[in-house]
Design a binder for these strands. Structure first.
Length: 969
DNA sequence: TACATCACG
DNA sequence: GACGTACGTGATGTAC
């Protein structure tokens, strides 16, 4: 056997070459080390993590790309003496003979993945790595068998997989490596996951089952319970023998009834370490790839960036970072340089430049060349580091800049002495040398405020709020691009838009996690105490990633027809929302306290009455205890158990019982209402009042919802109560400053107007045009009534169905809401659709569009991706279909109000008004207005809101004002 | 941490 | 024939 091979001098194969030079087991040299890569796990992860890609000839290759990239990266980092990638060979294995349902509900591989399996085996071979597979056995069994066989050599085994089923193999000499987290999994990690040592894992799995593999287990027993039982009884057989003595009746019965199921489950999850080895262990010895084979393979797939990154494209300068980009003629409305056009390459091109090392800039002389490079390029990526996620309280700790891929620096400003690794010297630790904030800001301000240099940020609103505050330099960064919003403008609903996720998805690069830099929990240190080398590696990488994301994503805006949406709406929202968040809204804390006191007293009374009615004290706030009292003890009718086996006690259930004259549920409903208001709004809100200005400042999330709406957190000011009198009291605690009023402007029936517009319904269009009541018109149409004969009940029913339609409601759902039979509900829906055939067509069109393209569009062209529309499970697909129906209405409304918001500040200014926009609540805008300007402001706001879009129906805003938010409605 | 519940549009 | 049953959010308390 020959094991010495020529050293191949490429970055990627270096690790391999080192290993190949190692001695075979049994001789002197590095200890034998077998690495077994779970290939199937890699494939599915790559397939699902990456967007579709195709070769020029149309063959889908996203999984091939992801797999090749991962394997290549892995080989640069890990050295073994023996190496194999192990695959599943077929769907049917010996386990199906034991239990025919095993993995039975696993869907067939998606058609786009099928042609990629053989390419992935080719890729493995191209790296010179052995491919192992065997009919009738899963990859996991082969891994178990090789691990066992290799142990005889006295060597170490590392299994690269995140599959928990492999944890049973962990033992001295055998470890797992999580390929995502790059974290070894040894006994403590297994214990953390399963609550038992690795040798007991199969016993726990036998009890807990595994829904993803259709391993049944024992019903009602999860991992936690299983671990406790196995710990107590040793193993599965010990437990089954002792089952009759178990105290808990449910558990005892389940164990006795399903003993055989548990035994079968154990057989299913136990890996077969006696599986035959398709190739001898010795043949897995690491060898260098045949020269040119890998390059040839990569070239065939069109993976040019990878070829380049691995130094296989014959370019001697492959590793040197580009220092500057050629300038481009301004191509967009911004008049600013555009990133390089998308390359023809199908891959999410990862740049050749490495991520780091980066420079730490600690003096003005070192900062100057970065500023010059940014001016030369006309664009830079920017990121701030702070000591808080709350932008309004955060102190600037440092700034990072990137001027080209791989060329980034970190400028520490308020770093203290590094905390970790403090030595034992007596003298007080000193902060590291660094520029002062004044010094750095003085140098950077002209650049950051220069209208001819584009600043690229990720979630720019945060950085803008930090930097605009005087204590952090008071810099007004402009103009800007925001990679989070670029992504959101094209891919809402498709995936998240955080930097780490986008980097992994589009750059194939996993940035250093924040937690890795600062630690977590009690051990977490402020960023300003992180050692400068670590801080630089993290912070400069963020700027580098931001710049590369911008280069990868910005060109797509044009091809995906999202450029106008991004430039005219999303990007302009940044400054608008920044100002709203900075403004905040005043809350009367004393009034909140009075409300809380009142609610407390009433809750005490109610609680006493509830306990009396129950016949014993219990925790009214516990749905579990309440359910047991209502349905187990008092045997009230109408109880339904949820999926966890607990009685359902939500408001609908309690209202039903209350309507039948039961006093206990009625009081509980009232108690719950007060409890909710008190804890969430009285106490939660009071804790959020900023001591500096007596106002609450929300944080609007711009890239979170699947429909284009905003969301609001800490506190959420988009769900302040209003529907009940008690709730309205809380809304009245939101007040205006002296001399001002709050002015609220609501879009009237905006989603129904969009329905009339999109489905082009003549009757509804006419009703809106004439300013009629839309629900009365619907009632007249579908119940064939004279317009003046529409009573309250008919209108109520029409209103329910109008809203139900927008939500994709079924006859079943309508029946439940109206309290009628499904037959009658069916009749109403039929009448509705026969009166408004355009609506039926529109619903069908939306479902079909989502099914065929994966997305639906708003009337303004925004794509909303619908997750699960292709699902095989009917329930999941049904959910997706209803989401597809709703999305254009919810998203269209969101877009209308965003358009009004971006126009509003300039319109107010032009009218000489000093009103401030404070909040957006989906179809409502709230302003704080000087008393003297109320009428003029109302006119201006109305003009902007109603004039923002031309639909087939008019838009209407309803405006009111008052000393507080309650009165403004 | 997951679930149930409920606040809003 | 069964399946599940109105969209989108965020905060809180209980129970595991």
């Amino acid at each position: 056997m020959c094991c010495r091979t020529a050293r191949v001098a490429t970055t990627t194969t270096e690790g391999l070459a080192d290993a190949a030079a190692a001695q075979a087991p049994g001789t002197t040299g590095p200890a034998p080390h077998l690495i077994l890569v779970d290939g199937s796990g890699y494939i599915f992860r790559a397939f699902h993590a990456l967007p579709p890609m195709t070769r020029p000839d149309g063959v889908p290759v996203n999984a091939v790309f992801g797999f090749t990239n991962m394997l290549g990266q892995f080989l640069t980092r890990h050295v073994g003496t023996h190496l194999a990638v192990v695959f599943d060979a077929s769907r049917v294995t010996f386990r199906n003979a034991i239990y025919d349902q095993y993995k039975a509900h696993r869907p067939e591989a998606p058609p786009e993945l099928v042609p990629q399996f053989s390419l992935i085996r080719e890729a493995t071979a191209a790296f010179g790595v052995a491919c192992i597979e065997l009919d009738g056995y899963e990859a996991d069994d082969l891994i178990a068998a090789y691990a066992k066989a290799f142990e005889g050599t006295g060597g170490q085994v590392t299994i690269v997989s995140s599959d928990k089923d492999l944890m049973q193999l962990v033992r001295p000499g055998v470890q797992l490596l999580d390929p995502i987290k790059q974290k070894p999994i040894r006994e403590p990690e297994v214990f953390e996951k399963f609550g038992v040592t690795p040798d007991k894992v199969v016993d726990v799995q036998a009890l807990a089952g595994d829904s993803t593999d259709n391993v049944p287990g024992v019903p009602g027993i999860g991992i936690k319970t299983a671990a406790a039982l196995i710990t107590e009884h040793g193993d599965l057989e010990g437990l089954l023998a002792a089952a009759p003595q178990i105290r808990q009746p449910k558990r005892r019965e389940a164990l006795i009834a399903h003993a055989e199921l548990a035994r079968i489950s154990k057989k299913l999850v136990t890996l077969d370490s006696d599986a035959p080895l398709p190739a001898p262990v010795d043949s897995l010895l690491v060898r260098a790839p045949e020269p040119g084979r890998l390059a040839g393979f990569l070239r065939e797939q069109g993976f040019r960036s990878m070829l380049h990154r691995m130094g296989l494209d014959g370019d001697a300068n492959a590793d040197s970072a580009p220092v500057s980009r050629p300038r481009h003629a301004p191509a967009s409305a911004t008049g600013l340089p555009e990133p390089a056009a998308a390359t023809a390459e199908v891959t999410p091109a990862a740049d050749a430049a490495p991520f780091g090392p980066y420079e730490t800039v600690t003096e003005a002389a070192a900062l100057a060349p970065w500023i010059a490079a940014a001016r030369e390029a006309g664009v830079l990526a920017l990121d701030t580091e702070t000591d808080s996620l709350d932008a309004l309280h955060a102190n600037l700790v440092g700034i990072s800049l990137a001027v080209a891929p791989g060329r980034a620096c970190y400028i520490p400003l308020r770093h203290g002495p590094a905390q970790a690794g403090a030595d034992l010297l007596e003298e007080a630790p000193k902060p590291p040398p660094q520029m002062t904030q004044d010094e750095a800001i003085a140098a950077l301000r002209p650049l950051l405020e220069d209208p001819s240099v584009l600043k690229v940020l990720h979630n720019a609103k945060y950085d803008l709020e930090v930097l605009c505050r005087a204590e952090n330099g008071g810099v007004a960064v402009a103009p800007l691009d925001d990679t989070m919003l670029i992504s959101y403008s094209m891919d809402a609903g498709r995936h998240g838009h955080g930097m780490d996720e986008l980097s992994l998805r589009h750059l194939g690069h996993r940035p250093i996690p924040y937690d890795e830099v600062t630690g977590t929990g009690r051990a977490r240190i402020p960023f300003g105490q992180v050692a400068l080398d670590k801080a630089t590696a993290y912070a400069a990488e963020d700027a580098d990633v931001t710049l590369r994301l911008w280069q990868a994503l910005k060109p797509r805006l044009r091809t995906e027809r999202a450029l106008a949406l991004y430039e005219q709406v999303e990007r302009r929202m940044v400054a608008v929302l920044r100002d709203m968040e900075l403004a905040g809204i005043k809350v009367d804390g004393a009034e909140l306290a009075r409300i809380g006191e009142d609610f407390s007293q009433r809750m005490v009374t109610l609680e006493k009455e509830i306990h009396e009615l129950a016949g014993k004290p219990f925790n009214v706030g516990s749905p579990k205890q309440l359910g047991e009292i209502l349905f187990d003890e008092q045997k009230l009718p109408g109880g339904k158990r949820g999926k966890a086996g607990a009685w359902g006690t939500d408001a609908a259930v309690l209202e039903d019982l209350a309507a039948r004259g039961h006093e206990l549920p009625r009081r509980v409903l009232h108690w719950r209402q007060l409890s909710k208001l008190k804890s969430t709004y009285v106490e939660g809100l009071a804790a959020q009042i900023d001591k500096r200005d007596g106002r609450v400042h929300t944080d609007f999330s711009m890239a979170l919802t699947s429909t284009g709406r905003l969301s609001s957190t800490e506190p959420n000011l988009q769900n302040i109560p209003i529907r009940t009198e008690e709730g309205a009291r809380i809304r009245r605690a939101f007040v205006a400053e002296p001399g001002h009023v709050l002015l609220a402007a609501d879009y009237s029936q905006i989603e129904l107007r969009l329905l009339a517009h999109l489905a082009d319904v003549p009757s509804l269009r006419e009703a809106f045009a004439k300013g009629e009541d839309i629900h009365s018109r619907t009632a007249a149409d579908i119940f064939r009534l004279d317009p003046d004969k529409v009573d309250r009940e008919a209108r109520r029913r029409a209103k329910t169905i109008n809203f139900g339609i927008i939500y994709g409601m079924s006859a079943f759902g309508l029946a439940a809401r109206l309290g009628i039979g499904p037959g009658e509900a069916r009749g109403i829906i039929d009448a509705y659709f026969s009166q408004y055939p355009g609506i039926l067509e529109e619903m069908e069109r939306l479902k079909a569009q989502a099914r065929e393209t994966g997305y639906v569009t708003t009337p303004f062209g925004r794509r909303l991706w619908i997750d699960g529309i292709q699902a095989r499970e009917q329930a999941r697909r049904g959910n997706a279909e209803r989401a597809a129906i709703n999305a254009p209405f919810q998203g269209g409304a969101a877009e209308i109000i965003k358009r009004a918001m971006v126009r509003m500040p300039a319109a107010l200014r032009a009218a000489g008004l000093s009103a401030r926009m404070l909040l957006q609540v989906h179809d409502e805008l709230l302003f704080e207005v000087p008393e003297a300007e109320v009428e003029a402001t109302a006119a201006c706001v109305r003009a902007v809101m109603e004039g923002v879009a031309e639909l087939r129906v008019p838009l209407k805003a309803e405006i009111g004002h008052g000393a507080n938010w309650g009165e403004a409605h």
